[in-house]
Simulated assay, not measured.
Amino acid sequence: MSEGNGGLRSGRLADAAGVNPQTLRYYERRGLLAEPGRTLGGHRLYPAEALTVLRVIKAAQRLGFTLEEIADLLPTAAHRHGRSDAPLVERARLKLTEVEERLADLTVIRKALQQTIDAGCSDLIACAEAPDCPLPFAEPARPSPKSAP
């Protein structure tokens, strides 16, 4: 897969990783991907390890990690030999908690939407004014009691 002994050009690396070349440059700017060497003609040449890094980034994104979180994980992943998995495991636990919270929120939204469909609500304003409206509108703000001087 390499372009001679120097590495992979942007297009080949991007194709192999399933991203576009602009993504490679974006990841470089974000510090997720090391800046590659250059050919005499100025073409980027990435080391073979860059493909692994890109696969790790894409896998972490599919698991819901943000690029900022991935940037924190990559140094750990790159130097894992002989190290504990505790940083990754802890991050995975935190991400799982976030996912579970989002699932709970989505379950509430799903229920409200299904109730809206079942109630035949076709007008948002009319629904908001109906006492049995299933949509989760916020309660009106109540004035706070003023403290006595």
Rank of each mutant, 00 (worst) to 15 (best):
M1Y: 10
S2C: 03
S10A: 15
G11R: 09
L13P: 05
D15C: 02
D15Q: 14
A16T: 05
N20R: 10
P21H: 03
P21E: 04
Y27R: 03
E28A: 03
R29F: 02
R29V: 01
R30D: 06
G31M: 06
E35P: 10
P36R: 01
P36N: 04
P36S: 02
P36W: 10
G42I: 04
G42N: 15
H43V: 01
L45P: 01
Y46T: 01
A48G: 03
A50T: 03
L51G: 04
L54P: 00
R55P: 00
R55N: 13
I57V: 15
K58R: 15
A59C: 13
R62I: 00
G64C: 05
F65P: 05
E68G: 13
I70V: 14
D72C: 07
L73A: 09
T76P: 00
A78Q: 15
A78M: 11
H79R: 15
G82N: 08
S84C: 07
D85C: 15
D85R: 10
A86R: 15
A86I: 07
A86E: 15
P87A: 06
P87D: 03
L88H: 04
L88M: 14
L88Y: 03
V89E: 11
E90M: 08
R93C: 08
L94E: 13
L96R: 13
L96W: 08
T97R: 14
E98K: 06
E98D: 15
A104L: 11
D105M: 11
D105E: 15
L106E: 09
T107N: 13
I109Q: 14
A112S: 12
Q115T: 08
I117T: 07
I117G: 00
D118S: 11
A119T: 07
A119E: 08
G120L: 02
C121G: 03
S122K: 10
L124G: 00
L124D: 12
I125R: 14
C127W: 06
E129D: 11
P131T: 05
P136L: 02
P136T: 02
P136V: 00
F137A: 05
R142S: 10
R142M: 10
R142G: 05
P143Y: 05
P145D: 06
S147F: 09
P149M: 11
P149H: 12
